[in-house]
Nucleic acid binder design. Sequence first.
RNA 1: GCGAGUGUGGCGGAAUUGGUAGACGCACUGGAUUUAGGUUCCAGCGCCGCAAGGUGUGUGGGUUCGAGUCCCUCCACUCGCACCA
Length: 931
Amino acid sequence: MDSAQQPKYDPSAIEATAQAAWQASDAYRVTEYAKDKTGKLKPKFYACSMLPYPSGKLHMGHVRNYTINDVMLRHLRMKGFNVLMPMGWDAFGMPAENAAIANHAPPAQWTYQNIADMKAQMQPLGLAFDWSREITTCKPDYYKWNQWLFLKMLERGIAYRKTQVVNWDPVDQTVLANEQVIDGCGWRSGALVEKREIPGYYLAITKYAEELLDSVKNKLTGWPPQVRAMQENWIGKSVGVRFAFHHQISDEQGLIQDGRLFVFTTRADTIMGVTFCAVAPEHPLALHAARSNAAVAKFIEAAKRGGTTEAELAARDKEGVDTGLTVIHPLTRQQIPLWVGNYVLMAYGDGAVMGVPAHDERDFAFAKKYGIAIRQVVAWPTPKIPSNSPLEKGRVDHGNTGHTHAAQLPPLQKGAESRRDDGGFVVYDKCWLPHYGEHGVCIDSGAMNGMNFEQAIEYVATQTKADGGERKTTWRLRDWSISRQRYWGTPIPIINCDGCGAVPVPEKDLPVVLPEHLIPDGSGNPLKKDAAFLNCACPKCGKPAQRETDTMDTFVDSSWYFMRYCSPDSANAMVDARNDYWMPMDQYIGGIEHAVLHLLYARFWTKVMRDMELVKFDEPFTNLFTQGMLSAECFYREDSAGKKRWYYPSEITVRYDDKSRPTGAIANDDGLPVALGGMEKMSKSKNNVVEPKDIIARFGADTARAYVMFAGPPDQSAAWSDSGAEGVYRFLKRLYAYASQAKNASMAKSHADPAPALDFASAGAAVRKLRFEIHSILAQANHDYARLQYNTVVSAGMKMLNALEECKTQVGADWDAVRAESMSILLRMFYPVAPHITWQLWHDAGFAGKHGDIIDAPWPLPDAAALEQDEIEMVIQVNGKLRGHIRVPKDASKTDIEALALADAGVARHTEGKAIKKLIVVPGRLINVVV
RNA sequence: GCGAGUGUGGCGGAAUUGGUAGACGCACUGGAUUUAGGUUCCAGCGCCGCAAGGUGUGUGGGUUCGAGUCCCUCCACUCGCACCA
């Protein structure tokens, strides 16, 4: 056939037609309790991508996220599920304010324009969003419910106001939650965070710490282990004892409470090994000591200045200064020196620690540095010593071989320093350290001798009870600070009255509407200058009062939007019965960057709503999928100053050696070498960003979607490659050409009308072989769909087409029938990945006449009969090595197979003159001859 | 340091349960078509070797008839947390 007459694959035309048809039929609107053709209730499936911030620009990461979501939706929908896939906008936040300052225009305007732009960029991708459920968090009908729930939280004491030292971002001019401080810098601005004392509203997430931890550890099995570990880590539970050291330090300023220094420890069993106490530089006792001790004052001053990043803080040497003061050991009543230590954190526990150098790595380093006594009080009767541990060597050095008890090593409390020169200290230094975390038995501990860990801490808790000692659980998690000194956010519904204080806005007055016309100028919150917003009457006393101008952290908006999708138009309630239908969400899809912040807040919010009986579930997201990021090759040239100039891929040509290994690249303009920068996350500064719109313009949306799926497993990072995308484009072109050939028209027709009962059983072997291949590939593809391995689903489509093309020239009714069946399988199987071209070909082939639109067609399932083979190819191994292949009838007996195998020439060569010890036959697979 | 994850050709990556390692695609090489370039088609392609054959999934060991897959050891890389008492 003359190729010039072949219809040409024109993605832009096909995609426009398909999308217009979908829009005309409102194909993606879903309702609750949908039924199938037989009237049976469909199972529901709620699959949702994380809400995007309307930056105005759609990037490849979005494309990957939404395509995964879309493939899932289309697949499950054809499988008979009632699938919800909504989209919305995380529309409050700082970038809008920054843009407003730059453009002298209200942030609302910028935000709404960006939403329109991004929606327009999404549209060509053909994503099956139910746009009737679209949510924009900066609209009053949404944030009203932020305010409403906040008031409910106030009533229940979940929300509260307090003044405390907070993280202040000097660039964004606002407070940050602990979670939003990364390496001592603001998560968004990157500015060094300052400490400031500011009043604000907090949500008591710590009240839920235990449950949040318990379910992330034990229940959320549908979440990636990494995310679960990160949340566990973040919540940071420590179980121990809190007790007090007495002291007689008087405090003229009243800052020091009642002569007790409280400490928290997880190792109360080591209490008899205390040889010092240390407090944080900000601790009241440290400040008190500084007033009369210049050295302490100097140290505190230095500690304040020193801090840069947390990682550096952690690596910093343990340093401290003796206050000269003493405290009294609660059990021995001995005087214990009190130090100030730079490694003691004011924010954790009581900002003070008991120092047990023998059993704490940090205390050990501190004691060694300052010559403080080291007293061992715990021994390990059955130490876990790895076989390659230097301890073994230490024993040999000491002639101690044969000792199995670490306790038999010389006790360390006496003259540990003097042991420095002898091998024993080396043993201590290198080998006992790993035992810091392990529990043992108390020694040299008076009444506590012989107690195990549990007994010992119970004893300490009991003995110190009279002085306020108790078993206590300490959390790393802090309450969530939600006040932001920003304009573009949900107004906190509070009225500050001189007489009545902070008065909640009555529910009937909600929402407190944020004026959208203000233009921030960078000099603080414009709400403070807007009289119309600011001035109001106190709901309690009616006197003039002022509205709270702080707005809520935008993580509040994203903590429950996925529920509002279920009932976006509910005017009288935050959520309604439709939420009970869709939630909990079956599949949440998004980036790993939200592993702690958003996902923890949303879980907390859900539990609060549950306790208010607004929802019936404990956890919002049953399954979480974190997609990998997209990277791309980058290229650079370094100038003499070491500054890199990054080249666009279009500016360079890559050179290869004779084994097609890239050896380097040259710039197209000057022909001089350019360095290969490797695969890096797409970023503007490295000029390696791939724009979705460019890819769609070049290849169409189906190629963009299919390539993004094909590039690698969706949960791992994937590298963009232009030539890889071209490969997918080639495949779609071949598919289109194959399906469009006149030769195939007749076979398609045979399947379009009520198809004749095709008796493949009587068809020729070659026909049945093709059928076997197609159905085998389908079986594999179905498995891959189920485990969200969409990269191999794309491969499956390619394999099917390859198999079909191999039989292209065959003619006959059997061939027409098998090709028609194969094509209908291929189109449906590949439809979720490339919905436009398959939709078009489905119509062109006439399949729509039988099944209707492809989206309503049943999902293809492999025919068991097709997977049956008359003859099976088996592999023969000799001693596990591949030596030959044989074809055996499917019902061949084991003895027949063995005989056939041994008769094989390749096998005979390797078994000649050797005794056969064993024959292993794995039915349908292989025979292993052991000689 | 702690926690999680990942190591397979020149590259992206396949390999349900232990059973033919390298599917599918890219790149590359040779050939056909084309005035040329591009497109398209055919063939080849882990490594060593002319071949027979050998060898091969980060390292070293183990279990097994048989290990990319299971167990132990070590190494490398990525991500997260990081003085949490």
